[in-house]
Amino acid sequence: MHVTPLLTVGPMDERIVMVDSDTGLELTEEQLDERSAVATVQLRRRGVRAGDTVLICLPVGPDLLVATDAVIAAGGVACPVPADLDAAALSARIIASRARVMISDLPQALEAADESRVRIVMSVADLSVLHSCPGSR
């Protein structure tokens, strides 16, 4: 078998899958694959199993895409909650859900989690750290 120790990147991988409208930063397919792979492992470490619903309350952007891909790869059901909902509606959506895990950085989402059945809230940062002990909010 031919071995390529140095990784070459084919044209498909450089394909840009998203441009962050706020920052203008681009997310390539390779970056998406990489980040969601790490995020999948993190979700599993916190107990996400096949069939589990995971709430995702993030603004539209690369993080949302990564989180959604990761939840699906972990075998979960991604349930997005629009981050721009007003506080009451956001809270109602979270409280009504039976999800055990939520991915969000929004303070109002965190607050609603306290009154919901969500056990673990993961931040975007929690999705990417793999070395150190996991933190969460």
Binding site: R46, A113, D114, S116, R117, V118, R119, I120, V121, S132, C133, P134, G135, S136, R137
Partner: peptide, 11 residues
């Protein structure tokens, strides 16, 4: 504290 995982106990 760093490294703490907060686990919310539901009813």
């Amino acid at each position: 504290i760093a490294s703490e995982l907060i686990w919310r106990v539901p009813p």
